[in-house]
Each structure stands twice: as structure tokens, then as C-alpha cells.
């Protein structure tokens, strides 16, 4: 369903996206619009290829057919130099943080600045400290990644992602495996950064409660298709049984509890018959 947002409002536009990994069809004719300046959540069960979607937006993968465009430019048609330019304006937060393990926290955040700008050291230092302050880790600047907890590593990665003041940030499962406090911190950060820096945020997650609390718009993906979209209120009120099961975490529904199997009773009896002799 396109056309929900006006064209000028849209930063990332995905049209008829089809993507195969080997023989498996990961995406089947997906259409999505990511509006500027808002937090858009992409949710769905594990393994639906949400990370793959982020990679497609970032140009690390090419669609089998269809298009992904960012700020009006089709990503997979860009030349390598242009793609790199585009990526400088995108920030990405990986699930594991993906900090460079041989560099300190400070060096990690300084990395994009050192690589892509010719700013003098004092300015870089101040920029790094400002970014670290924004995520609350200015005091941890000399620690090594191995000394950080998972939540702290993600915050450092976030500071690094905003180092070049990008247009948009993509968050890959930012809340997974976090304790309630770190989760709260991250939720707060994502929201504040988006407001404060005027970013566009794409959050890929399956943590319903946290994501829904900050998202301005939600897309639900399952089995390679968009099965629901709307503002959190619209999704809440949705009468689709699948959406209902997912959003409320129900054990059984359109996604069945039981993995496909034969008849229960005959399975038990079979078991008894064949083993009876062997046991002797």
C-alpha cells in the first residue's frame, strides 16, 4: 500500500522488491515508504529477513527485482563512489554493535571522522566527546570494547553511527537480549536522537512493546510480504488475526504452535510397538 505519505515526505522508497537468497524467496513484491524525520518500525517474526532488508537499503545486497531508493536515488544503480557517498549519510547500528575490537571507545567513535574528514585533532576530539555525551558514555571513552557490556557497546556504536551527522539511522534489533534498564535507555536514546537531530530512524525489531512505544509508523512483515502497516494505534485496532497474534504475543493463532506432524495417538502407539521388542 503506497501513497500513504506524500512524495516529498518519503526518504526511503521500496517498490515491488523481490529478493532471493539461493532458492529461497525472502521478499515477494514488498512496497514500503519510510517517511522523513520519523521513527519507522519494521517488525516480524525471526528469520523473515529484516536484517536483509536493511542490507538492501544500504546497498550491501542487490534486489532480484524491484527497487530501493534513498533520497530519490536508486541504491543498486549507484556506482561504487556514489554508493560510498550515500553510506556516509546513513548510520547503521548492528545487532552486536560491531565495534572495532582493537580500538578504544574513543577511537571507535572517531573512526568515521578520521576516515572521511580532514578535520584537525582538537575538533575531532570535541566531536567525539559530544557524541559520547549524547549517549551518556563520555566517561567510558578509554575503555576497550571487550570491557563493555552489551548495552554499553550498542550505545558506543550508536555514538559512532551519528558521528558524521547522517540523514538516517538503521537499527538492527537494538533491544534484543537487553535487561529492562538498558532497554529503557536505548528506547529513550532512539527517541531523543530522532527528535534532537532531526533524523529518520528505521528500527528493525521483534520487541513489540518497546518498539511500539516510540514508533511513528509500523510495518509488519511475514513470509516475505507486508501483512500490516499503520500507526501504532491503527495496528492495535487491526482485526487481522495474524497482526493480533504477533502484537499480543499469543502462543497460537495463524502461526501455529505445533510444527506439522502426524496423528498424535497413532504416533504414541507406533512408538510402543516397535520399541517393545528391542527392549528385551
Amino acid at each position: 500500500m503506497t501513497g500513504v505519505f506524500a512524495e516529498a515526505e518519503v526518504l526511503v522508497s521500496i517498490r515491488d522488491l523481490t529478493f532471493f537468497r539461493g532458492a529461497r524467496k525472502i521478499f515477494d513484491g514488498v512496497n514500503m515508504d519510510i517517511p522523513r524525520g520519523k521513527i519507522t518500525a519494521i517488525m516480524g517474526p525471526s528469520g523473515t529477513g529484516k536484517t536483509t532488508l536493511l542490507k538492501l537499503i544500504g546497498g550491501q545486497l542487490r534486489p532480484s527485482s524491484g527497487s530501493v531508493s534513498v533520497d530519490g536515488r536508486i541504491v543498486h544503480k549507484l556506482r561504487l563512489g556514489e554508493l560510498y557517498e550515500l553510506r556516509k549519510r546513513m548510520g547503521m547500528l548492528f545487532q552486536s554493535g560491531a565495534l572495532l575490537t582493537d580500538l578504544s571507545v574513543f577511537e571507535n567513535v572517531a573512526f568515521p571522522l578520521r576516515e572521511h574528514t580532514k578535520l584537525p585533532e582538537p575538533i575531532i576530539r570535541n566531536l567525539v566527546l559530544m557524541k559520547l555525551e549524547a549517549v551518556g558514555l563520555r566517561g567510558a571513552r578509554d575503555l576497550m570494547p571487550s570491557q563493555l557490556s552489551g548495552g554499553m557497546a550498542r550505545r558506543v556504536a550508536l555514538a559512532r553511527a551519528i558521528a558524521l551527522d547522517p540523514l538516517m539511522i538503521m537499527y538492527d534489533e537494538p533491544f534484543s537480549g537487553q535487561d529492562p534498564i538498558s532497554m529503557g535507555v536505548l528506547v529513550q536514546l532512539i527517541h531523543d536522537l530522532n527528535e534532537g537531530l532531526g533524523l529518520t530512524s528505521i528500527v528493525v525489531s521483534h520487541d513489540v512493546k518497546e518498539t511500539a512505544s516510540i514508533a511513528d509508523y509500523i510495518y509488519l512483515i511475514s513470509e516475505g510480504k507486508v501483512v500490516g502497516q499503520g500507526t501504532p494505534e491503527q495496528i492495535e485496532r487491526s482485526d487481522s488475526p495474524w497482526v493480533c497474534q504477533f502484537m499480543h504475543g499469543l502462543a497460537d493463532g495463524p502461526v501455529p504452535f505445533h510444527y506439522p506432524a502426524g496423528d498424535y495417538a497413532s504416533d504414541l502407539l507406533e512408538f510402543g510397538k516397535s520399541r517393545g521388542r528391542a527392549a528385551i
Partner: peptide, 21 residues
């Protein structure tokens, strides 16, 4: 190990070519 912990991928997304860097 850098590949497994997505550091190479992360670098690509930061527009730094990990092969050259």
C-alpha cells in the same frame, strides 16, 4: 573473527572499504 563479528560489514556501511583499510 572480524567477519564473524560484523566488523567488516560495519565498516562497509560506514563507507570504508575493509579490503583496503
Amino acid at each position: 573473527l572480524m567477519k564473524a563479528t560484523e566488523q567488516l560489514s560495519g565498516m562497509e556501511m560506514m563507507a570504508v572499504d575493509p579490503v583496503k583499510r
